[in-house]
Design a protein around this nucleic acid. Structure first.
Lengths: 247, 247
DNA sequence: ATGGAAATGTGATGCTTCGCACATTTTTTT
DNA sequence: AAAAAAATGTGCGAAGCATCACATTTCCAT
């Protein structure tokens, strides 16, 4: 699975520029970009199609570029020396990842492994090209700073939860967080990406057995349910109550 | 402890501009800034003096500005509902903090509490002023992106360690990390900031008793020592060996 | 539609780590 | 320099969670 394959034309979907522009508008950091600036980025961007389970980049592999999620979902994971895995972050439509390799002097390597959680398309932009873009279009740099601010903020909260809470509380909190982030409608709070309990456990930083036990309880209380590998939050109110009380 | 006091002139040290410029060069993101750009930032920046233990900002307080560490050291902490604390990050000379509030649409609040670990001086810059600066000086925006990249990278590693490792491994790894970050010389690896075992435990995300037990072992083996609230790493090689072997 | 693979549920067991207690040491204050 | 406050070291018991085991269910490819 050589990362070089991105550069191979056979993997690149050729898409008309105008269409791509519309797609790019869905990426958070390009949203407000002027058309002129956009044109130059479009020229350099590649569209890549991935299947569920495919790996996009590997931790500690040399960082070549940055990715934007057009459709589907991606998990970013890190491993320790024993092969235990944790999901550091999950990305969906509009998100950017591998942005931590931009301008980095300390390390040229990707900090995490990226894997598709469901089929989807990504945009790929060479690191150097994006860096040029950031130099030339202040508006773009600002958007990137905004995006990174949010990422940092989110990650500090995750860190607190992982470090301080017990398995039950972490599970409930993760459910709430994912329910808010990955739902489609505003009235329902289902988690619209396929996530096995095994994977969910790596979000929480615990074992699948522990999560399974917590899920069993929550199912009994009618708070959540699972259908075809998707978690359904039946009662968000009750879920939040659990979190705030000392259960 | 009203944060408004930053705006009170009595707290502001008036420093000659030229002198400040020299100081600002020590802040990572200002390092390569042109003199012209620098002048405008200097006009807006305030110098604040703090004593060890003083709090600079509070988690969930309305975010007004960004801070730069000129001297001393700062810890950034978050709490859970039970009052348990974790040190999310530590900042020293040249670092920026509260940068996660820049351009943020999702939240206007500081994500963490900042406390001085030792006496020192900080620069304070109004959020809006810095945002203006980032718009006007692309070079500055680039530096900020670089800085945030590094922060993100560091934080994902921390998250992995906190989630996956046991107390012993986490302690050893934190020692190594802090030894690398907070030493002054290149030959010695002492941690040049006062850190009690109690505080160290909140870096690792565990209890002071657990850290105390690990430290006892490491002291017996002649790997570390403590002198007047500072951790001394006597044998960095041995420390790294511990980490890589399955101990 | 079906067989094989992957994921799940749940009990039993034991290891880690927490939390408490309290004696002791170190630091800070007056 | 003495007193007060804060931090530390360590034993012990309890709680929480990981690990193992294995039956069962669900999913996916053919």
């Amino acid at each position: 699975m050589n990362p070089i394959h991105f550069l191979d034309d056979s993997y690149v979907d050729k898409i008309v520029d105008i269409q791509t522009a519309d797609f790019l508008r869905k990426i958070v950091i390009f949203k407000d970009l002027s058309n002129a600036s956009m044109q130059l980025i479009i020229k350099r961007i590649q569209t890549l199609t991935f299947k569920k389970g495919e790996k996009i980049i590997y931790e500690d592999e040399k960082a070549k570029g940055v990715f934007f999620v057009h459709s589907g979902a991606v998990k970013l994971t890190k491993e320790d020396e024993n092969g235990n895995e944790i999901i550091v972050c999950m990305k969906q439509k509009g998100d950017v990842f591998a942005e931590a390799c931009l301008f980095s002097k300390t390390s040229e390597l990707y900090p995490a492994t990226a894997t598709m959680l469901q089929d989807g398309q990504l945009f790929y932009l060479d690191k150097v090209e994006l860096e040029k873009g950031l130099h030339e279009y202040p508006e773009l740099a600002i958007q990137m700073i905004r995006y990174m601010s949010d990422s940092l903020r989110e990650m500090t909260s995750t860190l607190r939860d992982v470090a301080l809470l017990d398995v039950y509380a972490k599970t409930v909190k993760s459910l709430e967080r994912l329910g808010n982030k990955f739902n489609t409608s505003t009235t329902r709070w289902n988690i619209e990406i396929p996530l096995t309990i095994q994977e969910f456990a790596t979000v929480v930083g615990t074992t699948r057995e522990s999560v399974s036990r917590v899920f069993s309880k929550l199912k009994k209380e009618g708070i959540i349910d699972m259908k075809s590998r998707k978690i359904i939050i039946l009662d968000m109110c009750k879920l939040c109550t659990l979190m705030n009380s000392a259960y």
